[in-house]
Amino acid sequence: MEFNLEAGKHLYDECSTLILPALSIGNVGQLAVDLLVASTKAERVGYLDDPNVVPCVGNDAYTPTPQGDLALPLEAYESPSSALTLIQQRSPVVKGMMIEFAKNLADFAVASGKKHIIILSSLDFGRWQTVDMSSGLQIYYLSNTNVDGSDEKCEKLGWKKMKEYDPNQKLWKYLSTLAEGNVTQDDTSPFEDDLGEEDYYPSLPFAAMFSCFKAKGLKVTCLLCYCSEGDNIPDAFHLAEAACNLAGLTPDTFKGSEGGWVIPFSWQSVYGPPPDMSLF
């Protein structure tokens, strides 16, 4: 992975917290990062070139006036006022290369002096075994602060630890082995036919990223929410607000119209153009 700094831009030492998405159902993590980039007025400082990410190109996602800036698969944004670095990922990882991609991201985080990594992702609502909507949308977390994945700060914020995390479980242990680079000829990869229900969560992208950042000695926190495919903008607001709470930011201070949030320009066409009313 190569980091390409844009002309006239530089990285800010005070931006020691890195927020990035892990692609999953509903693209909630990506939508949340979009919301954070727009609301914190973060500027693009460069892009990451990684052979493990599918190439893509698109229009500027944040500026309504055409500037000729193209959106790329992996972009880095920084907001010195919020002390945040944000990475937006717009295309998937090549099949079978998730661990290598996560290792490259971890190397970038270390090289750029990041101290705390916040991963935003989503989980399949269909696999939520105990549905309790009495308290509304719930944030789940996974942290490397303690061996069991718990974190006192996250608990004080009212979030629940992802109960499916077990560092001694077969696939979680295998991820750690890969992330630490300790694979030997005696280590064998779990075959897909052998995977059970307990292996679903560690098979997701956020788990590989969590393991690789952890292996580099970085503090890493995954913020997760359950969702289904469809209009997941409310979930993105919820996840972005959780990220702000963890980073010590107050969304009300953002200069937007939606409770302080600034709606990304690209969201105007996230579900395509409006219908042709002449048809009705």
Results as ranks from 00 to 15, higher is better:
L249T: 06
L72H: 08
M209Y: 06
A83N: 14
A83K: 15
L86D: 06
V110C: 08
A111M: 13
S269V: 05
S122V: 00
I263V: 14
F101A: 14
A7P: 02
R127T: 03
L249Y: 05
E229Y: 04
V147F: 13
Q89C: 00
A215E: 06
A83E: 12
A240L: 05
G272Q: 08
K114D: 02
S81E: 13
Y174N: 09
I119N: 05
Y174I: 02
K9G: 00
F213G: 01
L74E: 12
G29P: 00
N144S: 03
K9C: 08
K216M: 04
A243W: 15
L204G: 07
I263A: 04
D231I: 11
A240S: 10
C154V: 01
C227F: 02
F108Q: 09
L105H: 09
E198R: 14
L70C: 03
Q30E: 14
L70G: 04
S82I: 00
N146C: 01
G29M: 03
L105E: 06
L120R: 08
A61G: 03
A76G: 01
K41N: 12
L224M: 13
L224K: 12
E180P: 00
A111S: 15
I119S: 05
E241S: 15
K163V: 08
L171N: 09
A22I: 03
S134D: 11
C56H: 07
G29R: 02
P64M: 08
K95W: 08
S278E: 12
